[in-house]
Computed example of a mutant assay.
Amino acid sequence: MKHLLAGAAAFLCLTTSALAEGDPIAGKTVFKKCMACHSTEPVNKVGPTLSGIIGRPVASIADYGYSPAMTAFAEGGKQWSEGLIAEYLTAPKAMVPGTRMTFAGLKKIEDIANLIAYLKSPAQE
């Protein structure tokens, strides 16, 4: 619960304007923390592809086997908005207990904003 509260507090600090100001070039560097499990190409690895994640329904990649926890989290038609991704990235296991994602989360709000900017436009070098 403590991590969930910390994640919620960080999320509340992450305003829409902060997300809009993210730097996709810096986000590419942050994405290196994700590369072992995720791709920005339309190819699944250990984790599902993050290609086109902004606006995509949660747990919706047809050829990826999501955890029961993530499938349950997706119920009700949740979509990966910038805000939901930002909240998730602060503490994935707190937000979706039982997720297979082992990543502890990103602690810096600027890293989250930069990563989201990169995910919106991964072709930027």
Rank of each mutant, 00 (worst) to 15 (best):
A18L: 14
P42H: 03
G27T: 13
T16H: 03
A26Y: 04
A20F: 06
A18R: 09
G27L: 13
A36R: 14
E21Y: 08
K32H: 11
P24G: 15
C13H: 11
E21D: 13
A36Y: 06
S17K: 10
G27K: 10
F31N: 04
T29M: 07
C34T: 08
S17Q: 13
F31S: 01
T29E: 12
C37T: 05
K32G: 06
I25T: 11
V30W: 01
T40W: 03
S39N: 05
A26K: 07
K28W: 02
C37P: 01
K28Q: 09
D23W: 08
F31Q: 05
F31R: 07
A20N: 08
P42G: 01
C13P: 00
V30F: 01
L14F: 02
T40F: 06
L14C: 06
P42C: 03
A18V: 12
D23I: 15
S17T: 15
V30T: 04
S17N: 10
G27N: 12
G27P: 00
C34Y: 08
L14T: 14
P24N: 15
A36N: 09
C34W: 09
C13I: 12
L19R: 04
C37Q: 01
L19T: 03
F31V: 02
A36S: 12
E41V: 03
T29Y: 10
S17M: 09
C34G: 04
C13G: 12
K33L: 12
L19W: 03
T40V: 14
V43F: 09
A36C: 08
K33I: 08
T15R: 02
D23M: 08
L14I: 13
L14D: 07
V43G: 03
V43I: 15
S17P: 02
A36I: 14
F31T: 00
G22F: 06
A26I: 04
I25L: 14
T16Q: 08
G27H: 11
T29W: 08
A18D: 12
L19K: 03
C34N: 05
P42M: 00
T29V: 11
A20P: 00
I25S: 06
T16G: 06
I25C: 06
A20E: 14
M35E: 02
S39F: 08
V30K: 04
K33H: 08
A36T: 15
I25D: 00
A26E: 11
T15S: 12
E21M: 07
C37D: 00
H38P: 07
G22P: 01
F31Y: 14
